[in-house]
Amino acid sequence: MTVNSDDSHAPASSTLTCPVGVTDCPIALEVAELRRNLSTLSDLVKTDPLTGIGNYRSFIQALEQEIERTLRSGQPTSLVMLDIDFFKKVNDQWGHEVGNQALIHLTTLLQKTVRKLDIPCRYGGEEFAIILPDTTLTASIPVAERIRQVIENTPLDVAGKSLKLTVSLGIATYREQENISVAELVKQADEYLYQAKENGRNCVCHAKPPSINIVSKEEKQTLSELFGSGMTKKD
């Protein structure tokens, strides 16, 4: 039996041929089935079984890839960490099955709210992470705020009763000039998440966005020369 490409990397659909030309060669069929099973197992290893989105392992791999992309392209990557407020009360008062429904409900809202290129993952428990490729801190703030509002305004229906959920969010951004690890970026976003909790929950916290100088130094100097001392180099 020959294989058109390396078994360890070829997809399950790669053509397998029997060396003696036997139709429906059992060995070829077995290898094809093993490939399909391997592909399925690979997906399961990276997927959270409850919500169907990426799990912690998938999140770390995706974030590492986006940071590498930032280093190549110079475009920043933002990370949003999100935690459901008072989730223990949800489990205590409504039961763990409803708690699971709440996690699925939140996942559905996330997938409908973020862009197709964004990467929502379940970080663990009731905490989620959303990777925003090619997104500055300034641009990520309204995204996080929109997520917060959508979740707050879309309660989960539980047998005709409304279960209102709110979330706290923290944002951190990786820029080309940053010299921090994936773990440090996650820690930054988590710290802002905890700050949101301390600020009363149901809010978004982040570093102060960088100021944007619309007028260049050269333009300021020209204006200063045109209009006199009313505008100095310090302005």
Results as ranks from 00 to 15, higher is better:
S42N: 14
D43E: 15
K46R: 14
K46G: 00
D48P: 13
L50N: 02
L50G: 02
T51I: 01
I53A: 02
G54K: 04
R57Q: 08
S58I: 02
Q61M: 08
E64H: 13
E66T: 09
E68F: 09
R69C: 01
L71Y: 02
L71V: 02
S73Y: 09
G74T: 03
G74I: 00
Q75E: 02
Q75T: 01
T77E: 01
S78F: 06
L79A: 00
V80P: 00
V80N: 00
L82H: 04
I84R: 02
I84T: 07
I84P: 06
D85V: 12
F87D: 04
K88F: 10
D92W: 12
W94V: 05
W94F: 15
V98C: 03
V98S: 02
V98P: 08
G99Q: 08
G99T: 06
N100Y: 06
N100Q: 09
A102L: 03
L103Q: 07
I104G: 01
H105C: 06
T107S: 11
T107D: 01
L109C: 04
L110R: 03
Q111F: 01
Q111C: 12
Q111G: 01
T113R: 10
V114F: 05
R115W: 08
K116G: 04
L117V: 13
L117Y: 11
L117K: 08
I119C: 00
P120S: 03
C121L: 05
C121K: 05
R122N: 02
Y123M: 08
G124M: 06
E126H: 11
E127V: 05
A129P: 05
A129D: 01
A129M: 03
I130V: 15
L132H: 12
D134P: 01
D134C: 10
D134L: 09
T135N: 11
T136P: 11
T136S: 15
L137S: 05
L137V: 06
T138H: 12
A139F: 10
S140L: 07
S140Y: 12
S140W: 10
P142T: 03
V143F: 11
V143G: 08
V143Y: 10
V143P: 12
A144Y: 14
E145T: 11
E145C: 05
E145I: 06
E145V: 05
E145M: 05
R146I: 01
I147D: 09
Q149C: 05
Q149L: 14
V150Q: 15
V150G: 13
V150D: 11
E152M: 14
E152S: 14
E152F: 15
N153L: 14
N153D: 15
P155D: 07
L156A: 09
L156Y: 12
D157F: 06
V158Q: 11
K161R: 15
K161V: 07
K161M: 12
S162V: 02
S162N: 15
L165D: 03
L165Q: 04
T166F: 12
V167L: 12
S168E: 10
S168N: 12
I171A: 07
T173M: 14
Y174N: 02
R175L: 11
